[in-house]
Write a protein that binds this DNA or RNA. Structure first.
Lengths: 348, 348
DNA sequence: CTGTTAGCGCTTTCAC
DNA sequence: GTGAAAGCGCTAACAG
């Protein structure tokens, strides 16, 4: 069995190659200032031994770890996994490894994850704060010796740069579109209403509704399919049957769609539907579902790019770097007109 | 600005607390054999300084890194991200960090990723081999000084344990179900046909078809929606219009479904459809799509569990551990009967 | 209970 | 071009 018990070390390579450790070090770091002959020889020995440098030792010498941490609520959620994939790509370009951890939106878990990442001395951090207002998180992040970028949700009262979608404008856009279609009783299904993103969208909806002198109607009860069915049943049986529904998140949109389908409500004829956040089969279901699209990949990409910029600056700037004021980057959302809102898009 | 430039070290803590480094070390490792008074005091200093142990130094002392690597083709693919989430959960229970890297199914990328992970001295590796027959991969994995388990696809000619779905039986099950419905001209749309999983499914389909004395009909041309539309158009216009379609992967199923929809083909009346691998909205589209379901989470979970078992055994066993023969764990798949195959399931 | 000390594998002056 | 040697921050004997 060829399975080795321990990894070969640099000095083993040096010994076997009959050179000093310095030379081997030079070889694995590009091979400058080493004669071509020695270079080739050492490389051969490295190959034979299957030597791979020990990152821990390098890190200990004060080098970058070439890793960045990404802390997200879930990796199975398409929104976050797309962000992650985009961030990965940027990390790779910068010769770094992305370490993803998941919090399940639990603040305790979040702190734990951050500590693990800090233990590993990641060079920087991208985080989706479970709770934008969490003090423990804010304090931890503020004192940590590495750049941090927040995505999807900001960290309030901190100097942390954040990259988020323009939820407010997106929701206004959506609501206005529904209003333009002539709907008067537009209900807003929020799903869990504590998250920053949802709050922003609620505000956007309210603003647009009030500007049109209509009445905002919120339903925050939808948690799963069952509650969606229940909520919609109530809406249908109530005195003011809605003529349009605006759902604030992916899963809510799907639950609402399924419930509407279940009750044989014609969409959009009887009730129109418009959702915040696009999803894979939104264009495949019948009717296809109109949505506000968020620039998912861009969020992940920009966040990672900004992080590496900060990493780079940090390197150039004097240690007394006066951190700039918290930047907040809001990325544009877009309305995708499909059938469920009452539009008749050109493509099938 | 409170942002510190360097992390405090253990000896700084020791100094400030007026104790030896050993004591601090004991405190951060559980606090055994330390007087309650000292313990509390040191903990306070740690808190004040915001000290977080440096994992690199620990690793260098030969400890486990408490990290495991997961190498997958894509993180945005629901199948793999679900595996990842499940593996994460197991890792967390074992007090470890899961590091996910993505290969895009590129063997070169895969080797690179593995080397990075090895540099970081992860304790173990879970990998979805881009190519089950790749020699470079097999050799690298065989000589690496840590346990490895493969998921979704095996690594041939290696002693590496693999956890895969029973693709062959699943495909037979699917095909047989279509045969039982009375369909005679059952076409198999493969999508990319080089992957291990697809090959297995093709074999399963062929076996079932031949056992029923029917003719296997493969179409390997579907790459995207456009090619699916083209393939189905050809099928419809050909001399032998199929009465059922069996698609071997998620995206192919969706493309086929959309094309069928586009051509206004009644499903399942004119052509039935059955797909390998379940997906989120398969039950929401109309007609709902029957599929073979793979135990996704279980694959990720089992793989991680086995890895930690091996890690544990390795610890107990003598260094001369004679590795057991390659285990291959095949997990059962399940047929989910919905409408597209011609069934009339009870639930909406 | 507590402290001293010797490395872990690597990079990096500083000599040759 | 090349090597010797000093640590990086931590753990683990081994004393006390």
């Amino acid at each position: 069995m060829a399975k080795k018990i321990t990894h070969p070390t640099l000095s083993q390579v040096a010994q076997k190659a009959g050179v000093g450790t310095t030379t081997v070090s030079r070889v694995i770091n590009g091979g400058d200032r080493v004669s071509p002959r020695t270079l080739a020889h050492v490389r051969r020995v490295i190959e034979t031994l299957g030597y791979v440098p020990n990152q821990a030792a390098r890190t200990l010498k004060g080098q970058r770890t070439k890793t960045i941490g990404l802390v997200i609520p879930s990796i199975a959620d398409p929104f976050f996994s797309s962000c992650a994939e985009a961030a990965q790509a940027v990390a790779r370009v910068n010769d770094s490894l992305l370490i993803v951890t998941v919090t399940g939106n639990d603040p305790r878990n979040e702190i734990d994850n951050l500590n693990v990442l800090i233990r590993h001395r990641v060079d920087g951090l991208i985080i989706v704060p479970a709770d934008s207002h969490n003090h423990a998180l804010r304090d931890l992040l503020n004192r940590v010796a590495m750049p941090v970028v927040a995505i999807d949700r900001p960290v309030v009262n901190s100097s942390i740069t954040s990259v988020v979608a323009d939820n407010l404008k997106g929701a206004m856009l959506a609501t206005q579109h529904l209003i333009d279609h002539g709907y008067k009783r537009i209900v807003c299904l929020t799903g869990e209403s504590t998250l920053y993103t949802i709050r922003e969208r609620m505000t956007g909806y309210r603003k647009a509704i009030e500007a049109a002198h209509l009445t905002p109607i919120f339903d925050t009860s939808v948690k799963d399919y069952r509650s969606a069915e229940y909520a919609i049943k109530n809406l249908l049986e109530g005195p003011h049957t809605p003529d349009a529904i605006f759902t604030l998140k992916n899963s809510t949109t799907i639950y609402a769609f399924e419930a509407l389908q279940k009750f044989n409500i014609a969409v959009p004829e009887s009730i129109a539907l418009l959702g915040f956040d696009d999803f894979e089969l939104a264009s495949t279901v019948r009717p296809s579902i109109s949505v506000i699209e968020q620039p998912v990949e861009e969020i992940g990409r920009r966040a990672a790019e900004i992080l590496f910029e900060q990493l780079f600056d940090e390197h150039k700037t004097a240690p007394t770097a006066s951190s700039q004021p918290a930047r907040q980057i809001k990325l544009k959302t877009r309305l995708i007109q499909r059938h469920s809102c009452g539009c008749t898009p050109p493509i099938a």
